[in-house]
Design a protein around this nucleic acid. Structure first.
Lengths: 216, 216
DNA sequence: CCAGCAATAGTCAATAGGGACTAGCCGCGG
DNA sequence: CCGCGGCTAGTCCCTATTGACTATTGCTGG
């Protein structure tokens, strides 16, 4: 297997390189950032790219697209510190072939990479199950996040910063009544009854991955 | 150097073991949990213990104490994914000898371990500076967190969950007016003007480490 | 070109939240 | 035994927030 590895922790990156080489695979490039990974994948057309999901701003999920564009035959396997089923679903939806936790021994990671290269979905069954469940019950408040408009995401940011309606109006450059309307729509879409609950929702379940890529 | 390494990501743990061995040091034990680390340190009395700060509930910081009890001559170096100066300060205060980021190359990590063993403080100067600054300026809103009472921390939890005054009164088993008073005192102590700001403060700066140990 | 949606702005009524107080009760240290 | 601090509870007054609306503008896909 020819592999490109991408992780922002250099230590882990080097370690993965060593460990994968030790199992008889060819690590063709190490990338410290998704952009580097895209370049490396475009250049080397590897069998698989192991990509850390832990980049800020949801960059990682966005990178999947670019990687698949750069080399359609390269499978993308996400590497994550936590088993976050919301992210799993999103990653798979975006075109990733697998998702493996950092807490797994190296042997299992290799096995997952192997499965991905063979065209199988490399996700733990239990995790996959949880990732698919919410799609059926559209009652999940997080599902609603998808339907927020750009403006509403900006409003969400203001809410998370604890701004009042006035401050929000100021930073968005609109009348307070407009800010109010956006807040109102936001609350309605999320199915909550106060900005505090919206903030709680985001800080509890909303990892960086929940945020749209183009809005920081 | 005789080393014990502790991290909950087995991958990183194994990788660290390999990398440190490759640099000519003796890794006497790998631990997946602070408890294991304490045991291993007690048994092997190593020169240094490399400990991930990323354990939930502030377990890591608490573990420093136990490690130093188990083997007073063993230096403890924290390993972290983020450069969080609040945690640095806390870790050093609890008896750690160093703090190094996972994004550093392995060579630098080894160097830091070496410094720690030689009795020096192994922290990046820039990080150390930021870690020490807040102690002087008591204007830091986070400083105020220290002075919250247990009840107020419970109230804080309710706020973070987006509860209204009524709900809060219900879950605390008191009158709404009492809950109100607690909220009021909380806001005053933190120097903010709304619960939303209090929540923002916590979710922005308040890592798990900010939370008192005995309250989860 | 029209329908639909996002963004803008506004109104009215009702409720929740915040500021500034007072006050009783209880345990703990001096 | 007294005072202090924390937990409890309450009041008055004002502002902020919310719910439920309507309405205009501008862009976009069919």
């Amino acid at each position: 297997m020819r592999i490109v590895v991408c992780d922002d922790h250099r230590l882990l990156l080097e370690a993965l390189g060593m460990a994968l080489s030790a199992t008889g695979h060819e690590v063709v490039a190490l990338a410290g950032h998704p952009e580097e990974a895209v370049q490396a994948v475009a250049e080397h057309q590897p069998d698989v790219c192991l990509l850390d999901v832990n980049f800020p701003d949801g960059t990682s999920v966005a990178a999947i697209h670019q990687l698949r564009e750069a080399s359609p035959d390269t499978k993308v396997v996400m590497l994550s510190a936590e088993a976050d089923h919301a992210v799993v679903g999103r990653a798979i939806a975006e075109g990733a072939s697998g998702y493996v936790g950092k807490e797994k021994p190296i042997t299992e990671i290799v096995e997952m990479l192997d499965r991905a290269v063979r065209g199988q979905l490399a996700v733990e069954p239990s995790l996959l199950q949880r990732a698919l469940r919410p799609h059926k019950s559209s009652e999940d408040p997080l599902w609603a996040l998808q339907f927020l408009t750009d403006r509403e995401w900006q409003v969400m940011r203001c809410i998370m910063e604890g701004q009042t309606t006035e401050e929000m109006a100021g930073s968005l450059g609109v009348q307070r009544s407009t800010a109010r309307t956006h807040v109102q729509n936001l609350l309605t879409k999320l199915g909550v009854h106060s900005r505090l609950q919206a903030a709680a929702l985001m800080s509890a379940h909303g990892s960086q991955e929940s945020w749209p890529v183009h809005l920081r």
